[in-house]
Amino acid sequence: MPDCNVNFEAEIEEGQNKRSVKCKFCSSVILTPATAAIMNVEHSLPLIRQTKTTEENPDTETTSVFWAVKDMFTFQNVGFSNTVGNTKYLTCADCEAGPIGFHDIPTKMSFVALSRVSHGDPI
């Protein structure tokens, strides 16, 4: 799904996430409101659903709107994959759906793709 299909503007308040960031598949809360900053960065992410099974060459898409998180312990619930190059991929902590974003090891910044999560009130 391309980023532009979704209205992200409504989710932003003072540059931060207005509502909770949740897993699209199981509703696990990934970030609580007002804990991440909106950021535009182009980054290619492997697709959640892969059509082919080649591990070295996963299907990817370019994603450009992210919730940026400085301190990994800001996350409510999240999984960090093993390291691939300079990054670790982020997953849902409860159902392992992912990648929902990535963690950049040199800068210690984490980025959650808005197109890969849902937004809503915590249950």
Binding site: F25, C26, P46, L47, I48, R49, Q50, T53, E55, P58, M72, F73, F75, Q76, N77, V78, G79, F80, S81, N82, T83, V84, K88, Y89, T91, C92, A93, D94, C95, E96, A97, G98, P99
Partner: peptide, 25 residues
């Protein structure tokens, strides 16, 4: 750690590289 019972949504890409750690609140 994965907690993955059969109903879990484990994707090929993530299960191939594996999970290092989880943060839970």
């Amino acid at each position: 750690l994965f907690r993955f019972s059969d109903d879990a949504f484990t994707t090929t890409f993530i299960s191939t590289i594996g999970i290092d750690f989880k943060i839970k609140t």
